[in-house]
Design a protein around this nucleic acid. Structure first.
Lengths: 205, 205
DNA sequence: GTCTATACATGGATAGAC
DNA sequence: GTCTATCCATGTATAGAC
C-alpha cells in the first residue's frame, strides 16, 4: 500500500480496489484458488493485470484479503451475539440464525473456505481458518454448558455441541450444493428444534 | 473394472493400473483436481507419463475412475443396510455407522468430493455426485418416515432428516479438518443419540 | 497508477523408437 | 506397453513507457 499524502481525489483508487475485491470473490468462489487466474479477476474487474499487482502484490495477496474481510466479519458478529441474554435454547437459536445470516452475506467466502478447510489444500497459501471457526465452536459450546449447569439440558456437552453445529452446517451445505433446495433460516431453526426436543415421541422409548 | 478376465498373464498390467489408481487417490486428495499434476501421479506410482495416458486416457479419465470406484462402493453398502430390520432408531444407528465406515474406507475420495460438491468446481470435469448422495439421503428419509408412521418419532420429516445427516456430516467434517480430533463411530452415535432423545431435560418445559 | 509487451515456468498431451 | 524427447497452451509476474 503506497503512502498517500493528502490526495483528496482518491475515489478512483478506492473504486478500483473494491472492484478487484468483488471480482476476486466471484472468481475464487466459482473456480477455487488453483483454477482461478489473475486474468479472470482483472477482466471481471475491468482493469489490467499490473493494476492487481500494484494494489494486492500477488494472486496470494488478493486471496488473503478476500478471506480476511469475510472472516473478521464472522468473528465480530458472533462476538456480538454472545452478549445476549435468555434461556440457553433461545440463545442457541439466535446464534444459529446469526451463523446462517453471515453465511448468506459471505457465501462466496464460505464456499472457498469450506473447500480448503475440509478438502484438499489446492495449493492455496496457508490461511488460519481455525481462529474464526473455533470462535464459533466455543460460542456454541459455552451456551450448551450453561444450559447444562442451569438444568435446562441434559447429556454430553461435546455430543450436543456437535449436533447443534451439525444442523447449521447441514443447512449451509444444502444451500451450497443446491441453492434451489435452500431451507432458509426457518428450515435451520426447525432442525435445531429437532435437536432440542428430540425425534422420539414423548413417553415413547 | 476391465472387461476381459480370462487373461492370466495380466499381472503386470493390473499392478500398474492399481498403482496408478492408488497414487491418483493420494494426489487428488492432497492437492485437489486443478492443482494435482499428471507428473505428481506418475512419479508416486513409479511409472512414466505415457503409461497413465495409455491406461486412463487423460487426467480426467484418471479422476473419474478414482471417484467412480469409491461412490459405487457407497451405493452398494447403503443398499445393503436398507434390508436390515428393527426399530427406526436402531436402523438409523446402523445406517449412520455404515456411512461413517464408508468414509473411513474412502477418506481420499470423500475429501475430494466434499470440496467439489460444496465448493468451487475447481475446473474439474463434471461428475454426478448427486446420484450417490441422494441415495443416502433417501435412505435416511425413508427410515424417518417409517418411524413417524409407526409412532416411534414425532415432528417434521424433512427437519429430522437434516438433523440426522447433519450429525453424520459434522463428525466427518471434524475428522477431515482435524484428524487428531476425530470422534470416531462412538462419538457419532453419541451425537445421533442427542438428536433422537433431545437436549432438553425430560419434563423441562 | 495504469498501460503494452514480454520473460519465464509449468503442465497436459503426444510422437515415435523399442 | 513402456520409454525419451518434445510440442504447445496457459499462467504468474514484471519491465518500462506514459
Amino acid at each position: 500500500m503506497p503512502e498517500s499524502e493528502a490526495a483528496p481525489p482518491e475515489t478512483t483508487e478506492r473504486k478500483v480496489r473494491e472492484r478487484l475485491h468483488a471480482a476476486a470473490a466471484e472468481v475464487f468462489a466459482r473456480k477455487g484458488y488453483a483454477s482461478a487466474t489473475v486474468n479472470d479477476i482483472v477482466r471481471k474487474a475491468g482493469v489490467t493485470k499490473p493494476v492487481l499487482y500494484y494494489h494486492y502484490g500477488s494472486k496470494e495477496g488478493m486471496y488473503k484479503a478476500f478471506l480476511e474481510s469475510a472472516l473478521s466479519d464472522l468473528e465480530e458478529r458472533v462476538g456480538a451475539v454472545e452478549t445476549l441474554r435468555g434461556s440457553a435454547s433461545l440463545r442457541l437459536s439466535r446464534l444459529c440464525g446469526e451463523i446462517y445470516a453471515i453465511f448468506r452475506r459471505h457465501t462466496d467466502a464460505v464456499r472457498v473456505m469450506h473447500a480448503i478447510y475440509y478438502g484438499p489444500p489446492q495449493g492455496a497459501p496457508y490461511f488460519d481458518f481455525d481462529r474464526a471457526l473455533f470462535r464459533v465452536e466455543d460460542s456454541v459450546s459455552k451456551i450448551v454448558r450453561q444450559g447444562l449447569e442451569a438444568g435446562e439440558f441434559e447429556g454430553d456437552a461435546a455430543a450436543m455441541t456437535r449436533a447443534v453445529l451439525g444442523v447449521c452446517n447441514e443447512c449451509i451445505d444444502i444451500e451450497l450444493a443446491h441453492p434451489e433446495k435452500a431451507v432458509g433460516k426457518a428450515g435451520l431453526l426447525e432442525s435445531l428444534d429437532v435437536v432440542l426436543r428430540g425425534m422420539k415421541r414423548e413417553g415413547g422409548r
